[in-house]
Computed example of a mutant assay.
Amino acid sequence: MEWSLWVMVMSAFATSVGALPVLFIRSISHRRMDSILAYTAGIMVAASTYGLIPASLKLTNLYVLCFGVLVGALLLNVMEYLIPHIDLDHERSDVKLPQQGLMFVAAMTLHNIPEGLSVGASLASEVENLGLVVALSMGLQNAPEGFLVALFLLNQGVRKSLGVAMAFLTGAIECLASVFGFFMVHIALFLVPYGLAFAAGAMLFIVYKELIPETHGHGYERLATFSFLLGLLSMIGVVEWFR
């Protein structure tokens, strides 16, 4: 149990480690911002289409996959209309999380829950090396996601420390979900295929709705396109390397 707990913590909090470099960024140009966001968008698309969706199909069928993907996307679409602009500290005008940033953090948090369930349930299962492989895949995906969360919030005018803290929060939620999945393995295993599909739908929605438009509004569309492809291929290469 102790070894499994360490694996769950390390996988989940790779999000926080990935967010830390944002603290050392003084300023970032639109060109570099668009390139980084597009690169991470490519990683997210690869993680969804090359990792989460095939894994869901192996555990269930096309109907469950389509249901989970559509529910993930529809939920974020509803959230976009329901979440208002929020001032996190009314005494300070510089600590604000705008609607776009709040929806993005909520999306990343929601999709981390089924990922955490997958890690915990896989570690508790009797399938040899399954838990380690799933945890490693999620950890490799979480690091750039943490950087993306913090960087996206920084681009929305949020303070660096708050951006890193929000990235840490998304990792903490995944860690709790991993522990739950470990102790409720029978229930979690039933939910895993739905959760994987839900996570894929949430990620694809946020990529197409938020990240791609964000990278195509400053005149660096070609650079962003090739950065996206590089991120896509990088994630596929990493997954293949560890298989």
Rank of each mutant, 00 (worst) to 15 (best):
M1T: 04
E2F: 05
E2I: 08
L5Y: 08
V7A: 03
V9E: 09
S11A: 10
S11H: 11
T15G: 05
G18P: 14
I25R: 15
S27V: 08
I28K: 12
H30C: 04
R31V: 03
R31W: 04
R31L: 04
R32Q: 06
R32L: 01
R32P: 01
R32G: 03
M33V: 10
S35N: 07
T40Q: 08
G42V: 07
V45P: 04
A46S: 11
A47P: 12
T49C: 08
Y50D: 06
G51K: 09
S56V: 11
S56M: 04
L57G: 13
L57R: 15
L59E: 14
V64P: 07
L65Y: 07
C66E: 13
F67A: 08
F67N: 02
F67E: 01
G68I: 10
L70F: 12
L70T: 13
L75W: 04
L82H: 08
H85F: 14
I86V: 15
L88T: 15
E91D: 13
E91V: 12
R92G: 02
R92L: 08
R92K: 10
S93N: 15
S93W: 10
D94C: 09
V95Y: 15
K96F: 12
Q99R: 15
G101W: 09
L102Y: 09
M103Y: 06
M103N: 09
F104P: 03
V105I: 11
V105L: 01
T109D: 03
T109Y: 04
I113M: 01
I113F: 03
P114Q: 10
G116S: 10
L117E: 01
A121K: 00
A121N: 04
A121C: 05
A121V: 03
S122G: 10
A124E: 08
V127F: 01
E128C: 05
N129H: 06
L130P: 02
G131I: 07
L132R: 05
S137V: 07
M138K: 00
L140Y: 06
Q141S: 13
Q141G: 12
A143I: 15
A143S: 15
E145M: 08
E145K: 13
G146I: 12
L148H: 12
L154G: 10
Q156N: 11
V158G: 02
L162R: 09
L162K: 11
M166C: 07
A172T: 10
I173R: 08
I173M: 14
E174S: 10
A177H: 10
A177Y: 04
S178L: 03
S178T: 12
S178D: 09
V179C: 05
F180Y: 09
F180I: 13
G181P: 04
F183E: 04
M184D: 00
I187S: 05
I187N: 01
A188S: 02
F190G: 01
L191A: 05
V192K: 10
Y194N: 13
A197G: 15
F198E: 01
A199T: 06
A199M: 06
A200I: 13
G201K: 02
G201I: 03
A202Y: 02
A202K: 07
M203I: 07
I206M: 14
Y208T: 14
E210L: 05
L211H: 05
L211E: 00
I212V: 06
P213Q: 02
R222P: 05
F226V: 13
L229K: 03
L230Y: 03
L230G: 02
L230M: 08
L233S: 14
S234E: 02
M235I: 07
G237H: 09
V238G: 02
V238R: 05
R243C: 05
